[in-house]
Amino acid sequence: MPDIAEATAALIGIAAAAQQGPGDTLRVVLLVSMVGGALLAWFLLRGYGRGDTAEHPSEQPGDTPARGASGDAGDANA
């Protein structure tokens, strides 16, 4: 007849290992969120170092003439 104490101890050890909680899942969630946060910060901050600002006001996209404007000095849209 097998030793019941050893079998019981083995089963208790297995059960205790299975009830450790969400350790692995929590580690994965934290790692993915940290990597995602770093990628999001890189994506949002990458445009600041490019120097996209125009040096001349005529290069600004908002300075285009209105539709139908002739550009004459006497024109009301000039």
Rank of each mutant, 00 (worst) to 15 (best):
L45W: 09
E6P: 00
I12T: 12
A69V: 04
A76P: 02
M1H: 07
D72A: 15
V28N: 07
Q60Y: 01
A15L: 10
M1V: 12
A7V: 08
A73W: 09
G21W: 02
M1N: 11
H56W: 06
L39T: 12
G49W: 02
R27C: 03
L31I: 08
S58K: 07
G47Y: 06
P2V: 12
A17R: 14
G74P: 00
G62C: 02
V29R: 13
E59D: 14
G37Y: 04
N77C: 02
P57R: 10
A76N: 05
G71Q: 03
E6W: 06
D24F: 03
G51P: 09
A76C: 00
G13P: 00
A18P: 00
Q20I: 11
G51Q: 08
R46F: 02
G47R: 11
A15W: 00
T8L: 15
A41G: 08
S70F: 02
G23P: 00
V29S: 09
M1W: 02
Q60I: 08
A17F: 11
D75I: 09
Y48N: 04
D52W: 07
G68R: 04
A54M: 04
E55C: 01
W42L: 15
L11S: 08
P2S: 13
G37T: 07
G51H: 07
F43T: 10
A5F: 03
A9G: 02
A10S: 09
M1P: 13
E59W: 04
S70H: 01
I4V: 13
Q19T: 13
Y48K: 09
R50K: 02
R46Q: 12
G74N: 13
P2A: 15
